[in-house]
């Protein structure tokens, strides 16, 4: 049987999430909730001089939400805040199925979640971390 979207990248990030831990020196924290299932993510970032120096998340969720958050942190740690916000916009665009090939390249491993655009029921899982990140950075 086809098992198209549980690809290796997703399985790997779900099983061995590099960024799933507490971040004691974080200076920004925001909890995001997926309203359709009650899953929660607690995102923590350490931001200095407008650059995301480190990031981590905690919480429970499905493979898609967990892997998506982990991939996101891989991508945004070390980048300026503005760039992270721009990438979250690109990610949401990809989920809507509107990304160009060049834009997809910019998202690196997050491109592995492209197929979610065909699964409306899982969109909220995939965007949970990204949405939380964007909310948090924009509030600042």
């Amino acid at each position: 049987m086809a098992n198209t979207f549980y690809n290796e990248i997703l399985i790997d990030h779900n099983q061995n999430p590099y960024h799933k831990h507490e971040l004691p020196d974080a200076n920004m924290t925001l909890a995001g909730v997926n309203p359709s299932c009650g899953d929660e993510i607690n995102l923590q970032l350490k931001v200095e001089d407008g650059v995301i120096r480190d990031g981590a998340f905690e919480g429970d969720g499905c493979a898609i939400s967990q892997a998506s958050a982990d991939i996101m942190l891989d991508l945004i740690v070390g980048k300026p805040v503005e760039e992270a916000i721009r990438l979250s916009g690109l990610f949401l665009k990809m989920i809507r199925g509107e990304c160009s090939a060049e834009e997809l390249d910019e998202l690196e491993e997050a491109g592995a979640l492209e197929d979610i655009s065909h699964m409306p029921a899982r969109v909220k899982c995939a965007v949970l971390g990204w949405h939380t990140m964007k909310e948090m950075l924009k509030k600042k």
């Binding site: 969720g61 499905c62 493979a63 898609i64």
Partner: peptide, 14 residues
């Protein structure tokens, strides 16, 4: 170690 969303998605594949 498998979230119910993922259980349902895998069953949906079948």
């Amino acid at each position: 170690n498998v979230h119910p969303h993922d259980i349902s998605a895998i069953l949906n594949d079948d």
